[in-house]
Design a binder for these strands. Sequence first.
DNA 1: ATATCTGCAAATGGTTTGCGGAGGA
DNA 2: TCCTCCGCAAACCATTTGCAGATAT
Lengths: 135, 135
Amino acid sequence: MSFKGHRMTNQRRTILEVLKGTTSHPTADWIYDEVKQKIPNISLGTIYRNLNLLAESGQILELNYTNTQTRFDGNPSPHYHFICQECGRVYDLALELQPQLDMEAEQISGHRIDFHRLEFYGICQECLTHDSPPN
Amino acid sequence: MSFKGHRMTNQRRTILEVLKGTTSHPTADWIYDEVKQKIPNISLGTIYRNLNLLAESGQILELNYTNTQTRFDGNPSPHYHFICQECGRVYDLALELQPQLDMEAEQISGHRIDFHRLEFYGICQECLTHDSPPN
DNA sequence: ATATCTGCAAATGGTTTGCGGAGGA
DNA sequence: TCCTCCGCAAACCATTTGCAGATAT
C-alpha cells in the first residue's frame, strides 16, 4: 500500500491512523505525543516530514488559522471549519459547499480561481454552556 | 490624536501611514524596510509591537494564510481576499459580503458565530498573462 | 539493490520580550 | 510628571534540514 512512489512506512501509517482517528484537528505536537505511544523513539522531525508529505499528496489538510501552530485535518475532502475564539478548538461544519462563490469571484476579479477556504469564528456550544471550558 | 489610551508616536503614525498607503498586504519585514526610509533607526521589534497593537484595536487586519510570514491589511473593514498560488500576492476582492452564511452555519452547528473569513486561491490575472511574473 | 525514509541534533527564521532610557499627554 | 513607548539584543519556539544509518519495494 503506497501513494505515488512514496513508501508506506510504519511511522507514516501510524501518523495517518492517528490523524484519521480524531476529529480534533490536532497540532504536530499532539500527534507526536500520540504516535510516541505506539512508536516510542519516533522523532518530531519525522512527524513534520510526513505531515508535509501527506498534505502535499492530498491525503490530509493543513490548516493555518493562527500565526502559531499549524493544525492538521485527517479529512481531505473540502469542508468548512468553525474556530472557537474562547477555547481554540476547531470544528467541522456541515454547511453545504458554495461553489458559486468561485464563479462570482472569478468574474469580478479576472483571476483564475481554483478553490476557496471559508472559516467561521465565534464561541462554541461547549463554551457557551460552561463557565470554565475544558482544554 | 490617540486611540483608547494609546499614544500616537511618530513610529506608530508612520507604520500606519505606510500600511494604509499600499494595497499589497505586506509582511512586517516589508513594512520595516519602508518605514526605515523615514525613521532610519527604527527597530523591527517596534514594527511588530505596533502592528500587534493596531490589529488588537481594530485599526488594521492580520492575515494568516500561510504558516510562514503574517501579512497585514491597512483596510480594517470586512472584505474577502484572493491569494495567487504562483506569485504569492494577496488581492482584495470586490465580492459582496455573505452574512447569510453566518446564520446558516449558526443554525446548523449550534455555535455562536460572530464573523467569517473567506479566501479564494488560484492564479492571478498578472501571472496568467505573463510567463515570468514579477515578485 | 537502491532510492526513500528515519532518528538525531543543530540550524533556521519569524516573532516576542526584558531592560534601561526616551518621549508623548 | 509619569506612564507608555522605543531601540537593542537576546530569547523563544515552531518548523526545517544535514547527515549517516535503516528500511520498504
